[in-house]
Amino acid sequence: MNEYNFAYLDEQTKRMIRRAILKGLAVPGYQVPFASREMPMPYGWGTGGVQVSAATLTPEDTFKVIDQGADDTTNAVSIRKFFENTAGVKTTEETDKATVIQTRHRIPEAKLTEDQILVYQVPIPEPLRFLEPRETETRKMHSLEEYGLMHVKLYEDISQHGAISTSYAYPVKVSGRYVMDPSPIPKFDNPKLEMDAIQLFGAGREQRIYAVPPYTKVVSLDFEDYPFEATKADHPCDLCGAEDSYLDEVIMDDTGNRMFVCSDTDYCRSRRAAGHVGRLAEEDAA
């Protein structure tokens, strides 16, 4: 028998995961423990995101997977194929056509809508983990809203580097209550965490699910005199000319030539399809 239950997981498991998701949505930013299942990929390869997607998908959904913004990396391709095989859902690379988007370490550039769900893959869900290794203590800190230590980390950054040096997985305060790790997205993406879509976060190895409902206030932590800045490389995309998207730096040869291209491949493609042209595309044309 090689027929899978819809989206691979059995119904009881999906029910358990959905309960965790509902709890997470009810308490934005709170890490809900869940019984993470063994998936046909090792820990560290997106099992949390896959389980959340599996519990969220319905046969009518259109599914998109991106890995650091790109639809065509090995992992994005294999996860997409996984759901094509086990759920039979339509898949797409176009952000505005997808209803469920699973992502590793990026938020799509295109503005998401109320009809979409964004599922993040999370390695370490606990923002305080590197300062306070004890789970018993971090749980208490969250439940008692004792977040002084989080600011100590930022203080240490400034004292050592002159600025808050955290550039990804930048901690945020959700709905004025829980401090959350938004997964290793670049801090450039943090402002996008306030969006119209549902955001679900799954950590398979650490067995936690958390969520941010639409229109929730998400504030990046900072100091009054060192406010949060969503910085990115000071370049436009060399292919499509976009000034406002997060860029990948690509080394082109061994003489130091490099190019900056949109990390979000679909965003870049759609801009080029609409006629936008960047530096390299112009040179090619010339």
Partner: peptide, 10 residues
């Protein structure tokens, strides 16, 4: 301790 009671000016 200062940060724990709400000080936010580095």
């Amino acid at each position: 301790r200062l940060m724990a009671v709400g000080d936010r000016h580095y």
